[in-house]
């Protein structure tokens, strides 16, 4: 039987306000929180969250212009691969937009912090969870900014398996045709999905060429190299030209030896033994 650890013993409760400068480079701390919270809640989708930590850190610490979640002219963010919501909540905690108390309600009763991002959650611009919808929402948000003559940008993090969805390509074609240069999609290329490896389920051999063919600017990056992520996104022309897509190569379950690249960890929750080993692994990563 699992021994449920109270959140107070996992990390110290505080007001959650930590300046973005102080936590930049804290991917290890983010991974620890993802592991501890998912263990406490006995919820899976851990590996999917661990592999986008640096992407979220780059976006929320360096790239996106968001003074507060209520700023009407803020950059918009959509976690299209909504099942990695815990990684987003942890990011919002370090950003200072949610408290430790709020984070510790993850998957509890009466909370908006569920497995997938709910629209009523602070810092969540669009609720997601059904794959293949986030890019359409993002495309509309980018079109809105253009029509309103605003300089705000729109960022969305998608999964590579999400490219199985036909609706994804409807949005890809639309954004490319309309040259929505204020839109940036980051695809978490972790190379696996719920029931197999992407190359075995639906292989897209030349995904770079496919996006390029739909009039997107394509960049291939190391999804765990935060300096490269920041440098690439900082160099994008958001004023004119094509929309941008970063094919971010990641390792599913990054940082946890027994989880990396393993299909099993798409859904499985951690046992107490798993957690202890995972925390040791992450501390060394």
């Amino acid at each position: 039987m699992l021994n449920i650890v109270s959140p107070q013993t996992i990390y110290p409760l505080g007001d959650g306000v930590i300046s973005s400068q102080s936590w930049f480079g804290s991917a290890r701390a983010m991974r620890e929180l993802i592991l501890k919270e998912s263990f406490r809640a006995h919820v899976g989708h851990i590996g999917s969250g661990l592999c986008i930590v640096e992407i979220l850190e780059a976006l929320f610490s360096k790239i996106m212009k968001i003074d507060s979640p209520s700023d009407q002219d803020r950059d918009r963010f959509i976690l299209s691969k909504g099942h990695a919501a815990l990684a987003l909540y942890v990011t919002l905690y370090f950003k200072g937009w949610i408290t430790a108390e709020q984070l510790s309600t993850f998957c509890g009763n009466g909370t908006t912090f569920g497995v997938h991002p709910e629209p009523q959650t602070p810092g969540v611009d669009f609720g997601t969870g059904s794959l293949g919808q986030g890019l359409s929402f993002a495309t509309g948000a980018a079109l809105a900014a253009r029509w309103q003559k605003s300089k705000r940008r729109v960022f969305t993090v998608m999964s590579d398996a999400e490219c199985n969805e036909g609706s994804t390509w409807e949005a890809v074609m639309f954004a490319g045709h309309h040259k929505l240069s204020n839109l940036c999609a980051i695809i978490d290329m972790n190379k696996q999905q719920a029931f197999g490896y992407t190359k075995d389920v639906i292989n897209i051999p030349n995904i770079k060429d496919v996006w390029n063919g739909f009039n997107w600017d394509v960049y291939e990056v190391d999804g765990h190299n935060i300096e490269q992520l920041v440098k690439t996104m900082s160099s994008l022309n958001f004023s004119e030209g094509r929309p941008h897509v970063l094919l971010a190569n990641t390792i599913f379950g990054k940082g946890v030896s027994f989880m990396e690249g393993q299909i099993k960890w798409h859904y499985s929750p951690l046992s107490e033994h798993d957690l202890a080993q995972a925390l040791i692994d992450v501390s060394k990563s």
Binding site: G140, A141, L143, A144, F174
Partner: peptide, 21 residues
């Protein structure tokens, strides 16, 4: 805007537009 024969994206785009006012 004619979004093309793409009704799912049409509603998705409309959602993004509506969020902005």
């Amino acid at each position: 805007i004619n979004v093309g024969v793409a009704e799912q994206n049409m509603v998705g785009v409309a959602t993004g537009l509506a969020e902005a006012g």
